[in-house]
Design a protein around this nucleic acid. Structure first.
Lengths: 160, 160
DNA sequence: AATGAAATGAGAGCGCG
DNA sequence: CGCGCTCTCATTTCATT
């Protein structure tokens, strides 16, 4: 055996690099994890097939492409409506809206949390009319307008 | 013969592609927007310099790397504490925490909205002790545990 | 079974017209 | 902006452990 410790999560180190900058050459990643470029590539390929790596994307600044407003919305649906079918329908409806950047089905004082990106407050108001006021199953929603995107990203903590 | 270019927002079309898959060859993007590969490259380079494109990243599935729990947290700070300095300190503190994937400073019934990614509820409880109970400026926080990541991403709507 | 070294090929990066 | 080149990097092959 070699003297270098297995340091088990080599793939995690690769992920850690890629989720910061996926244009990093395999050669460079290999140097960091003591592996050759082809070995690194094999790991990446496997993780893409296993959908550990779900996508490779560019992060766009919304403000610079005419979509300066980010809003969080908590959505509460009618208790009587909380059948599996209606929840699934709501999931599909929210997910299909381009302005809905993120949608989570949650426990707690709300049922859904949405992250909405829009160009203007008017556009948001129009969206609320369509999605919430126009949906009898929506009991209430709370709006939180972002004043500062303090930290943005999809990076998963990969220390341990 | 070439078709005339479709109006203005060619760069938006490029962005639209890249935020879906930034491994798309410039050649392919060029075909879609009726531009040569070098022209596409120049646009990408300009947008990276202008930070319209802020980063190129791999999306990792948290559940497959031992971080299956996503939580939304609304944080409310003491009214008396809402000085610019204390708000900025809070921003820096939250942003520095690896488990805090996203942090927004917001208007409405809360001051901050956090997206937290953790391996276990125990880890979340530990984090709350450190970040919230251990901070006298935090008046209250509400927790929303995600049961389903219905839609995830950073894609900005780029239709209009 | 996974790796590394070398060969191949595709794509990015630049200068030119 | 498009066309060409060059060069880096991704990808494949193959021998090795």
């Amino acid at each position: 055996m070699t003297m270098s410790a297995p340091a088990a999560p080599t793939s995690r180190q690769v992920d850690s690099t890629l989720q910061r900058d996926n244009t990093t050459p395999q050669r460079v990643i290999g140097e960091a994890v003591n592996l050759s470029a082809p070995a690194v590539q094999r790991r990446i390929r496997r993780m893409e097939e296993a959908e550990v790596i779900q996508a490779n994307v560019a992060m766009i600044d919304p403000a610079q492409v005419g979509q300066p407003i980010t809003i969080f919305v908590e959505v509460e649906v009618e208790v009587i409506s909380e059948t599996a079918e209606l929840i699934d329908a709501a999931k599909r409806e929210f997910a299909a809206v381009p302005e809905v950047q993120q949608c989570y089905y949650v426990t707690g004082e709300a049922d859904f949390v949405l992250v909405v990106v829009v160009p203007t407050m008017t556009a948001y108001e129009t969206l609320t009319r369509r999605l919430f006021f126009g949906n009898n199953n929506v009991k209430r929603f709370r709006t939180f307008v972002s004043m500062d995107r303090v930290k943005v990203g999809l990076a998963v903590p990969l220390s341990g």
